[in-house]
Amino acid sequence: RAAGPLDDPGFAKVITCAACHGANGNSGSDMMPIISGLDPAYFKRQIENYAAGKRPSPEMEPYAKEVQFLGADQIAAYFAAQKRVPTPIRVSAEAAARGKTIAAQCVVCHGPDGKGEAARLIPGLAGQPPGYLAQQMALFKGDTRDPGDPLLAAKKALMKIIPDGQFADLAAYYSSLR
């Protein structure tokens, strides 16, 4: 028998995720986030928030509970170890250029190249699908993603002053980063 993916015990625990997040977490669609290469602590925080209903998602609340049942540490480690493939969705160069000029406000947390900062639980935005990024910005602005969470107060205060019309440009910019 050759070495295979079953040698990693995480592999058999994530079979249900591919229906939405794609092979090894590399979603190719616009609204499903890429979950490969996510920092394990950030990953587990999202799983906890979904399971508790703090980050409301009809899809993820049940699956987050499944992850907790099967072992969140192992599943977070599995996805952290998967090579991240940027979204295949192409954005318009004009939108990305417009987004770049607004994104200066985000750099302090998400970094100059959109890679985030794991130590502060700040996720990378580079290469995520644009539809997903824009939608999450709207959710932060409306305070429906983790309402009232003190860790996100500064971020949400910033989001509130960004006009909705700029979300698509910001999303295009971050999605286009590699």
Binding site: C20, G22, A23, S27, S29, M31
Partner: peptide, 22 residues
């Protein structure tokens, strides 16, 4: 889902793409 919506339909498209490939 709490109600019908366009965003659920967009996620349905995402599901379709990913699961066909799977």
């Amino acid at each position: 889902t709490p109600a019908q919506s366009v965003s659920v339909a967009q996620r349905a498209e995402g599901w379709r793409q990913s699961i066909w490939a799977d």
